[in-house]
Design a protein around this nucleic acid. Sequence first.
DNA 1: TTGAAAGCGCTAACAA
DNA 2: TTGTTAGCGCTTTCAA
Lengths: 330, 330
Amino acid sequence: MVGIAEVARAAGVSTATVSRALSGRGQVSDAARAKVQAAVDALGYVMSASASSLASGRTRNIGVLVPLLDKWFYATVLSGIADVLSRHGYDIALYNLTDDPAQRAGVFDTSLRRSRIDGLITLTVELSDPERDGILALGMPVVAVGAPNHGIPALTVDDRAVAHAATSHLIALGHREIAHIGSGRAGGEVPARRREGYEQALHQAGIAPRAELFAHADFTIEAGHAAALELLRRTDRPTALFAASDEMAFGALFAARELALDVPGDVSVVGVDGHGMSGFFGLTTVDQFPQAQGERAAHAVLAALGLEAPAGAPELPFELVLRTSTAPPA
Amino acid sequence: MVGIAEVARAAGVSTATVSRALSGRGQVSDAARAKVQAAVDALGYVMSASASSLASGRTRNIGVLVPLLDKWFYATVLSGIADVLSRHGYDIALYNLTDDPAQRAGVFDTSLRRSRIDGLITLTVELSDPERDGILALGMPVVAVGAPNHGIPALTVDDRAVAHAATSHLIALGHREIAHIGSGRAGGEVPARRREGYEQALHQAGIAPRAELFAHADFTIEAGHAAALELLRRTDRPTALFAASDEMAFGALFAARELALDVPGDVSVVGVDGHGMSGFFGLTTVDQFPQAQGERAAHAVLAALGLEAPAGAPELPFELVLRTSTAPPA
DNA sequence: TTGAAAGCGCTAACAA
DNA sequence: TTGTTAGCGCTTTCAA
């Protein structure tokens, strides 16, 4: 393996100059820089990450904490993060959190504390208080996307406004019996806010939210399906369904089909996310541009590390996308 | 940050003994081991990854090369990998390959060569020859899942057999006009083999494959949709469709619905993958257990690193799952 | 702008 | 079984 000493020799300079030329820190003459670059290219030199990290304290590596890697939303945000970081020469350390306490402990107590990363991005994870404290104690920039775990700076969409937009759309179409599939406080901040936005929109339209029109689901397509079946089988069937995620909305669409209900003839459905398949389902949804959220998060850590100018507000955009799953009630 | 010296002092032993006690290499008395562990717990010591790597040459980090992070299949395999590695105290370095030559060059020429990882897993990526050579030159264990890039040991399902199973199922139902959505040589090894398996099954049934019944698609739902539209609009419409991936099959199902064709009444559809949503679509598919593929790949690198006993054959299982999208032709 | 040299925190001979 | 110590390959003072 060719090291910095060999490069220095080939370039006719000291190792210190090679280091400075390659890192961009400190002054190096153009002549020296050129010689170093030539030697690097000729020898195919690549700096050892561990040696550099040990000496400098910088790792050029960002940790990403993800729950449920195989869910479209997280995978898409991750893809946005990877794009930006890769373009800046940063590597990604991926930490997939499961429900297994031992596995989580390993991540929080060991992996994250090995000094392997310069910063951390957490994707909508509900953290326990000790977990959150552990993260803050890492002493490195942390950016949360989605969930505002108290104390961790978060990039969030205004989930109340998202739900409000979806619900208002249904109200504007003339619906009064609007059910909601999601979760309350138990599911964490995000679902809770979406439910609030839903209820707020109803209130503003002079409609009292009815407990029977709320169905709990854990954001999977299966749970959305089950919840929708229950709601749509009621004798006083709602004319519209607002699901707190597109995958749950997909489940609802399948449920409607099973019950031989026409969408949007018999029931309108709205989701949240902008899932890649929502177009095919004709699903009206509130797109929250997850790929862009990942990109924003990556830029935010880079900014916190002083590598980029800080970006603007932490508020993320969203947009109601109208498709064929919503229409006025029959 | 508490270091090994502080632990040694607290435990009343030398740093060498601490190192041995924690790494499990070399002989350490039970008494010493206990004292070290107590000191570690008391001080909350976690070893510095860079210092340890620099001195030992081991990183406790495995690289994973992924194309298209936001596709269900890759995300699911990745999830399986993460599960196993995390359980073994290994971290993951995630490298997302894009089509951008500069980005790819950065990954192959720099990121992978920084001595940041002990081993590498590549997920069905079509690598250029120099890229593949670069990987082999890394001098570390490499495991490919899916694509048998020449020279890299691969865990693969028998893609010919997979396609053969899907096609034979349609033939057994009585279909003769069976179209295929996938790609030929151009798309890489995997699609090519699936097409071979498809044609082989036809031949064995005495059916001559017809060029008009092959439609190219790039494994996205959009492309599957477009390909199916084209096939299903033919006057001599095929009675069955074999799509080389579930997502393309989903596209085909949407296409059938748009054309007011009944599935399976007017046309049968089979996919490949065992996608999480295939059950909801009622899609008959050949499940290839992607999560388990990831787990197998992780075990394979660990075995190559001498941390586990080598597992069995590199052949991965698959299974035809019958659902409601296939039936005898009308 | 450059170079010499002292670490960064750990591991692994080697000697005891 | 343990301790001493020389690196591992860089970065960063400090002095020139």
